[in-house]
Simulated assay, not measured.
Amino acid sequence: MKKILTGAVAAIALVGIASPAAAQTNQRHYAGIVVGIPYTITNPGFLGTLAGEAGVAAQVGTRYTAVADAPSDSETATPTVTTTFNLTGSVNKDCSFYAGNNASATNIDFGVIGVRTGNNENVNNAFEMVGPAFANIETLTAGCNFNNEVSIQKNDVNGLVNAAPGGYDTDEFQANIPYSVSAAWTGVPVNTVTSGTGQSLAVSTSQLGNTIQQGAWRSNMTINFNAPAITNKGLVAGTYAGTTTLTLSAL
């Protein structure tokens, strides 16, 4: 028998397969010659094993076995693994308005508010305002990074008020100067995701204040004050003062 490895060289290949349900080697082979007749038995059952072992015991046959074993995966192998990473961070709500470098930047002085002082004025025109008073403010940096409210509030609905007017005929004079306020910027309505467009907020001469809600915005802002000329009454002499407060507040 040429297959019986007596005085021959056997090369054995060892193979490991890392894949699910890989079969493990368990081989048993018998071969021999009985009364001149060769035989082979491969992976026999119980009776075949008895016959093969009998041939080995009678020294008329031989046996070959190959058994291999290795522990299986510790867990079921997963060819594809998907992992989702949840990334989080936070940005604080903030509103900004550049109003100059010191408190004096927000002190708006109209100077002398001219009235008709000529002695040749008709009595119905004497001491009336010569023309409107106005002020313009512009900042290049304003806005909020979240839904927000823009608010303009005067301290007195009467506008600029003379706090020490003395006595006067109320039919002919007054001690206040009404004024309006308007602000303009580029933004979007509240809870709206779109390109910015022109936005505005106005407080009329008869209003104390007004508000508008916006989505996040950043742009320049202009604020205009306008005190129309009072032409039906004269102005009492003195200092006229008032305050207007602009508030940007994140919601």
Rank of each mutant, 00 (worst) to 15 (best):
A70M: 07
F85G: 02
G131V: 04
A22F: 14
E172T: 09
A241R: 01
T244Q: 07
P71N: 09
E149R: 08
V67T: 08
R28I: 15
S151K: 14
V9S: 15
G111L: 03
V236C: 04
V130N: 12
T88V: 14
A11R: 15
G114S: 12
T117N: 11
V130K: 00
G215E: 08
K93Y: 09
A183Q: 07
P38G: 03
I212M: 00
N43L: 10
Q199T: 04
F110M: 01
M129Y: 03
F127W: 12
L248Y: 13
P44C: 10
A99K: 05
S151Y: 05
A99L: 02
T88H: 06
Q27E: 14
A103I: 02
G166D: 02
S180M: 01
S204K: 05
N122P: 06
F173W: 12
S96Y: 03
G55N: 00
L87N: 15
F134D: 06
P44L: 12
C144V: 14
A202H: 05
Y30P: 10
V91G: 08
T80Q: 07
S104Q: 06
G55D: 02
V15K: 11
Q27M: 13
I113S: 05
N26Y: 14
Q174M: 07
A58R: 09
T88G: 11
K154I: 00
S96C: 04
N191W: 13
A227T: 00
T84Y: 06
E149L: 11
A133E: 04
A58C: 08
L251N: 14
G89R: 07
F85D: 15
A237D: 01
Q207K: 00
R63L: 02
P71T: 09
K93G: 12
T6I: 11
D109A: 15
D94P: 03
S72W: 02
I33Q: 05
A54E: 03
A227E: 04
I113L: 05
A70Y: 08
E138A: 13
G55I: 12
A216F: 06
M129H: 00
S204L: 10
S200T: 12
R116P: 02
S195G: 14
S72N: 14
I212K: 10
L5Y: 09
V67Y: 09
L248W: 01
P178L: 00
N43K: 03
N226E: 12
S200R: 05
G100D: 11
G52C: 05
N122S: 06
N107P: 00
V67F: 12
